[in-house]
Design a protein around this nucleic acid. Structure first.
Lengths: 230, 230
DNA sequence: CTTTGAATCTCGTGG
DNA sequence: CCACGAGGTTCAAAG
């Protein structure tokens, strides 16, 4: 990894065009040829960048560029598209390289899959008298997150961390399909999420889909309490 | 901005839990307290990070940690939530700081807003005899990108850079709503995008929605030519 | 391989 | 301040 602190301007041309006026920034060049241009603020997203695989060509500035104070030109070219990044370096304050090696990678816990497991274990959160049929119930157009039996028949559950209109549309498609199957029909829908957007709730209820808000911490707490019994 | 190259392990606890085993990485500390942990590969997303605003506390390792080779402990705490990042540094290979100042920021061109402006100006791309009614026509469920008058009545246009099934669903909802309004009905739909996925095109045409592929460069060219007249 | 859906999404814009 | 939509999204898993 090469880290350069430099006053520079940056131009990206590809799926859109973007330009950064001259300022002092960090240029990070990774082993796979990707380049990141970071400022001293914002979040983890660089101001501008080139995704790997890419190749960096360092060139001498043209006479015109040199006259405008450019001391080096970086051309970064994506290997699989014609996206390109042009960096005009005007002053290099630091330029160091380090060998980092391959990273062992990240281990995660607490994503939608965990939410699904917890809801399957605590299916009564859908209401009294609910029992689990199965998770990831396959249909022709994809898996329904959770299938359950309720007091009034079969229930298809679409699960999201954040409930948006897309999720309601998805559940609607499943319900249409399943209600065409005489062995399953009638199937009612439940849209379960940690947060449900107002527009999504309106759309869901307009279509007779029930909305259930989930409390992940409480569910995890119950899970931990149950685990401690064993 | 502070740049540290170090062998370290990293733990994140917050909206989920995530852990990085010990390896050599780049630690970037920005002026707003945010911390980024980068490896020498992947794309612009860090392996692990803390979003701003945050505060970094550097501590001495406990006796137990020191016995395991930890030479310093970084606690990064988010200011607006209880998210936290714990970095155990085992070997510091480099540690430098630079003043970067505030960045003038990115200038973009070619996003959906530009496409919408260009299509509104060149509304005849929808076909002969079309005139613009207005952009961002508000409905109860959100704004229709472009509303126009065609030879056969009112036309609602949904505009995307990449035409996907979601966009067709969105336009369908608008059309259903608008066709329930006797003052507007009948309203026909046009799905306009730079690229339209085959599945989206099939769904759209199945619902009587016309698909129009847009050539951004050509539209920009016309725009530039028109600008030069003034 | 492509396709699909989640994300500690981030980032703008508008109410 | 929150809510919504777009993204050069990135990322992993599944078909």
């Amino acid at each position: 990894m090469r880290l350069v602190i430099a006053r520079c301007s940056v131009t990206y041309e590809g799926r859109l065009n973007a330009h950064l006026p001259s300022a002092t920034r960090l240029l990070m060049v990774k082993a796979d040829g990707s380049v990141l241009v970071h400022s001293d603020g914002g979040s983890y997203k660089p101001l501008n960048w080139m995704s790997p695989p890419a190749t960096l060509h360092v060139e001498e500035p043209s006479e015109e560029q040199a006259a405008q104070g450019v001391v080096a030109v970086w051309r970064v070219q994506a290997k699989k598209s014609d996206d390109r990044l042009l960096v005009l370096l005007e002053e290099v304050l630091s330029d160091v390289s380090h060998e980092l090696g391959v990273d062992p990678g990240l281990v995660k816990d607490g994503v939608e899959a965990d939410l699904q497991r917890l809801l399957a274990e605590q299916i009564e959160l859908l209401g009294d008298g609910h029992t689990l049929v199965r998770r990831e119930y396959m249909t022709a157009i994809g898996p329904v997150d959770i299938l359950a039996k309720g007091p009034d028949g079969t229930v298809a559950v679409e699960l999201k961390r954040r409930g948006d209109i897309d999720g309601v549309e998805q559940l609607t498609r499943y319900l249409e399909l399943m209600n065409r199957d005489p062995l399953l029909a009638p199937v009612s829908g439940v849209f379960a999420a940690q947060q449900i957007k107002p527009q999504a709730r309106t759309l869901a209820e307009d279509r007779g889909i029930r909305c259930v808000t989930l409390d992940y911490d409480a569910m995890r707490g119950v899970d931990d309490a149950e685990s401690r019994l064993f």
